[in-house]
């Protein structure tokens, strides 16, 4: 792995980002819906509306608007939110850590349980526990994350109210965060009651996001593992007298992880998409929740900023996954 590879990948990401910016920008202005009409009440006069329109530059042609927007982007200016009247960059910087923490925890839950399910399933191949695991995965994968969210609220929030179902943490606790990464920051600052409350509030949304992801990952990993177990080098390991458990963990697993990890890049997209609905359902103050408000208010600069953020996240995660794969599989190095 050379630095050139990394630099090359990051440079290649630029056209992708430009594409994402252009498409969002054009689509938002072609699609019906007027941000000014959303922010002014029914009593606004024609003159008021025209003045606001000029204030936000919406009276200019799409091409002119785009050139101005691109110029501002290069200077790090994401524009001002129309509905919230705040800097888009600051708004996103405040909300992004919330989503990142939620997604990372959900990923950990999903990958951890997927590993357990896949490894146990392969270990008990062709016996009843494998069939049980297969049907369990089948049921989980069939239900989308927002339905899990609603069911979990119904069961653990309403029927047996043991879990919090709204917000990021207990409102009675006051915590002045500098970074908005509550989880890490509270741990570092020794505010463990904050950590507890944040984790407690995170359980239901994270589990809702994790369940379908876990099922898909488990299914892919299990079929990869089963395919590896039929390979010749596994047969040889058997002739040498290595136990089945050892063969699965120390011979097959690392090989099976290569395609499974590659696929998780695609799954990450679904996870990001999933946060939009799940954050909304749990009133979780992340960028997903913010995206829904931005769309309802036709807040063009904010939507653009959020799409750009999602695109950057996606590119970084895929770069990270590609690096992971080359670390797992020596055949992909020096390529």
């Amino acid at each position: 792995m050379s630095h050139w590879y990394l630099i090359n990948r990051l440079l290649l990401a630029l056209p992708t980002l430009l594409g994402a910016v252009t498409i969002t920008f054009v689509l938002l202005r072609v699609v019906p819906g007027d941000p000014i009409a959303m922010m002014t009440g029914p009593g606004a006069t024609e003159a008021d509306i025209a003045q606001l329109r000029a204030h936000y530059g919406l009276d200019q042609s799409i091409v002119d608007q785009f050139i101005i927007y691109l110029g501002q982007l290069f200077t790090g200016d994401f524009g001002t939110s129309i509905s919230l009247r705040q800097d888009v960059g600051e708004l996103i910087a405040g909300r992004l850590p919330v989503t990142v923490e939620l997604v990372v925890i959900a990923m950990c839950i999903a990958v951890g349980f997927a590993l357990i399910l896949a490894l146990k399933g392969v270990y008990w191949r062709d016996r009843w526990p494998e069939r049980l695991i297969d049907s369990f995965i089948g049921v989980i994968v069939a239900i989308p994350d927002f339905l899990w969210a609603l069911s979990l609220i119904l069961i653990l929030g309403v029927a047996i109210p043991v879990m919090p179902i709204f917000g990021r943490m207990d409102l009675t606790i006051s915590f002045d965060s500098w970074t908005n990464f509550y989880l890490i920051e509270s741990l570092l600052r020794g505010r463990f009651e904050v950590t507890r409350s944040v984790l407690y509030h995170m359980v239901l949304p994270a589990v809702s996001l994790a369940l379908p992801l876990m099922a898909i990952t488990a299914r892919v990993l299990k079929s990869c593992l089963n395919a590896e177990m039929n390979r010749e080098y596994i047969t040889l390991a058997r002739t040498r007298g290595f136990g089945r458990l050892r063969i699965i963990y120390r011979e097959a697993l690392r090989n099976a992880l290569v395609p499974a990890t590659a696929l998780s890049g695609v799954q990450f997209t679904f996870l990001i998409g999933g946060t939009v609905l799940v954050e909304r359902i749990f009133g979780y103050p992340g960028i997903g929740n913010m995206a829904i408000d931005a769309v309802i208010n036709r807040d063009l600069p904010l939507i653009q900023g959020l799409v750009l953020t999602f695109a950057v996240l996606f590119i970084l995660v895929n770069l990270f996954i590609d690096i992971c794969i080359t670390l797992i599989d020596p055949r992909l190095r020096y390529a």
Binding site: R231, E232, Y233, T235, L236, A237, T239, R240, G241, E251, R254, N255, I328, D329, P330, R331
Partner: peptide, 17 residues
């Protein structure tokens, strides 16, 4: 350890990682 196998296909018989 009293018995072993020389396999047919050397390309797939070693663990690639």
């Amino acid at each position: 350890s009293g018995i072993s196998l020389i396999p047919q296909d050397p390309m797939t018989s070693l663990n690639p990682v």
